[in-house]
Amino acid sequence: MKKILATAILSFSLYACGGDADVSDVKQSDSTSKNQSSKAAISPEVIKSFVDKIPSPMVISSLIKEMGVEYDQGLLNSIDNESKYNNDYRRALNLGIYSTDLGYANIYEKTQDATNLLVGVKDMADALAIGQYFEFEKIKELAKSSDKLDELLRVTEENLQEVNNRLQSNNRSDMTVLIITGGWVEVMYLACNVAKKKRNKDLETTIADQKVVLKQLVELLNYYDSTPKMKALHDELVELEKMFGEIKITLVKGEDKTEAKSETMVVEQGDREEAEMTQENLDKITTKISAIRNKIVN
């Protein structure tokens, strides 16, 4: 009976872990082992809470399109660069870059570019052993239909969320941090270059407000300072943060108003922030973000 019970408990335990059965399939990143000692001190919950709050690059890409700015293929990272990404550090950063570019192409309904970029996303994800969490065929099909943009954005976002969850639960949160950082650098590169060509108050405010996100990324990367490459990236972002600190931001205080309308509680915020971005601020930030991005993609 003891044997029966032991066998049954073993079966049960293995099955109960079924949700994470593919954990062993996910390879350890090449930075993981070097970084283990510093990582051990970081609670996965802390990393998750940081990662969860980083906004999707889609918000800025949408704003760029709604400004009436034409799509610029020249801003995208070329798929031809793929062969340069020969380690997990570069793959993860460029997975973030290609994902942001994919979102940008999708929003503009540029099917051919989206299909090419999807190859880049797939190759980077496969090389990082996380390709199984992307529904590539589904994304490819949705990208072909202009009336399925909402579903496409949802599937892409859900896939990225799943990848990040898997990486974190597999002790590869360093890769998550790099994917997110790459994605943010790319959307800032897009936004700054669009703003330089056509100055727009809304876009400049959005760029200035990115200091909040940048602060989160700097804090996140700080946890991995025992890895030289991540330390170098952290230091670059710290320099960028100083440039953001030079932008004048005024807070106008006000009272919040809330009202229940139909089935929704509608909030009108009282406080209002206004950023004054000078040409010098924009030039400095654009130059720095382009330099950081250049190191990542080339």
Partner: peptide
């Protein structure tokens, strides 16, 4: 739902 027009990042 709750909806909000954010005016402070």
């Amino acid at each position: 739902a709750i909806s909000i027009k954010c005016s402070r990042t």
